[in-house]
Design a protein around this nucleic acid. Sequence first.
DNA 1: TCACCTTAGTTAAACGTTTAACTACCTCCA
DNA 2: TGGAGGTAGTTAAACGTTTAACTAAGGTGA
Lengths: 340, 340
Amino acid sequence: MATIKDVAREAGVSIATVSYVINNTRPVSQETRRRVLEAARRLNYRPSIIARSLQAGRTHLIGYSWRPLPPEHGSPILDRFIHALGRAAYQAGYHLLAFPTPDVEREIEIYEELVEMGRVDGIVLSATNIHDQRVAYLQQTGFPFVAFGRAGAGWDYPWSDVDGTAGVAMAVRHLYELGHRRIAILAWPEDSLAGQYRFQGYLQGLEEVNLDFDPALVVRVEHAEHEGRRGLRQLLELPPAEQPTAVICVSDLIAIGAMNEALDRGLPVGRRFGIVGFDDIPIARYLRPPLTTVRQPVDEIGQAVVEQLVALIEEQPLDEAQRHRLLAPTLVVRASTTAE
Amino acid sequence: MATIKDVAREAGVSIATVSYVINNTRPVSQETRRRVLEAARRLNYRPSIIARSLQAGRTHLIGYSWRPLPPEHGSPILDRFIHALGRAAYQAGYHLLAFPTPDVEREIEIYEELVEMGRVDGIVLSATNIHDQRVAYLQQTGFPFVAFGRAGAGWDYPWSDVDGTAGVAMAVRHLYELGHRRIAILAWPEDSLAGQYRFQGYLQGLEEVNLDFDPALVVRVEHAEHEGRRGLRQLLELPPAEQPTAVICVSDLIAIGAMNEALDRGLPVGRRFGIVGFDDIPIARYLRPPLTTVRQPVDEIGQAVVEQLVALIEEQPLDEAQRHRLLAPTLVVRASTTAE
DNA sequence: TCACCTTAGTTAAACGTTTAACTACCTCCA
DNA sequence: TGGAGGTAGTTAAACGTTTAACTAAGGTGA
């Protein structure tokens, strides 16, 4: 591997001159520049990124970690998010260091290691929770970080997020327009931040179309298929007149559970009994019936968090609109709400 | 951020001594060692990984790139593979640098950049194809790399792979035992290496159970849901007596297409008309009916390729058994072949 | 003619480690 | 008594860059 020294020798100049030519950081005479460039080309020279990093105190690496989920869940959104991050990072001149964290206990150690060894310049967080120790740690050390997902009360840091409220409200309006008047929701437990916003969208949607809120139509479920099933069962235990004619689910996995339960019971999923998911996971369109769902703008979020993080790292100021970015989801209408 | 100099000053020794203590690389007296450790603890010292990298000429980073797939496909296996790689890399003292490559044209540039700047110590390839320019480049430069997926003819490099042949043969036996005598396969085009091995498993399975090979029962399809549908349609255009009673699909996505088409036509998917997939994607178990499928041992493969790559990087010899590792998949039997 | 500026280049320090080579001291035994 | 050997530590070079400070040469204006 050729170094700057080799190029300097080959071109008959000092290494400083080579550096100035390569980085275009000071005027160099035509002739010398030509010789240097020529020598660099001949030797196939590339500056060592490590030496640069040491000198500059920057690695041009951004870290992203995710928590392992049981394989039967998959984590389609975060998977797509990794892709989006990688792409966006590359465009910004960075690379992505991706590390799955083991158990939540040892998680913070890994962050400390990465930060304190100077492995990465900044960190992207996702799936933050209310009292997130990673946030506490990073905030306290002043290390650059951003999150996919809004900050909990008491925190203030840059984030980008999907506007779950708008997404679910859209779903409510969609169902209302199809004639539904008793619309239920399978929501996450109250300690889920993202779940709260989506639930707000439910309330907001009901208000927009002038429907009364009925607590009996809200079931709190965990993120699992069998929980979706359980949620629907619980709704169907209501007296017939009080049963919903449509159900909004706070994730596609839950929607799959609800749909499976409905179909098992012979409910006509479609126009008469509507089911809406959230995420638009890749197979949503291939389910039977294909699932109407709220699509998260994952690529845009990846792009947004990288922009924010790079600004932080490079110490460019962020105004309020850039610090907190809420991206609009889209409603993808399929047969699970429209099939006759 | 404290450096080794700070620790040396604090402990009243030279930086060399600190280094020897930290790395346990030469005997140091009890007392001095105690003082150094104490100082390091007080200053919360961590060796800079960049400085170490520069000195050692190793980054302890391994690169993994994947090609972007259209979002309606998802790439569940490669997604799980990233997780597995990250975990395995961490355990081996490495980190994972994950980079999606843009168009195939500019792909090779990115590899050159990473390799020649010394960004990573080694590279993991996946989805290699017959005349893979990445393989050609890496082979030629002698840079350490391994692949998830076997080498094409003419190449020789370390790889780990799932034994697709065994997996499909298993599926054939399973269907045979259920009483099927006309078993079809929706296979990938012939230029797919992985597809070839799976197809071999089909032939091998037929032979094991003494069934004749019928070319009419083989349909070549691309990796897409609508291709699975098309494949099944084509099979059902055969005269009734020649139609298959079970179909093995070379991927779950194709199986989903085949299953959707079968159900649309009122075929009783299950014991009487069996469908088998390949991959065991996360939602396979939640399909209706749940999909019988061949599960790829993705975690083990991730582990295996990292072991191979680290051996290459650290110049430990690999014997033949370690150089090429074929991992057994498992057949996950669900209702798509057993439901009454 | 001389001081000063400009231009084009070089020298050397710095980034934070590791490690080979060296020094100083002590102990041991012939 | 003195050399050999061992122990515990230090010095300084090296890894490959960037960049501030310097030098040398030529041009310019008073």
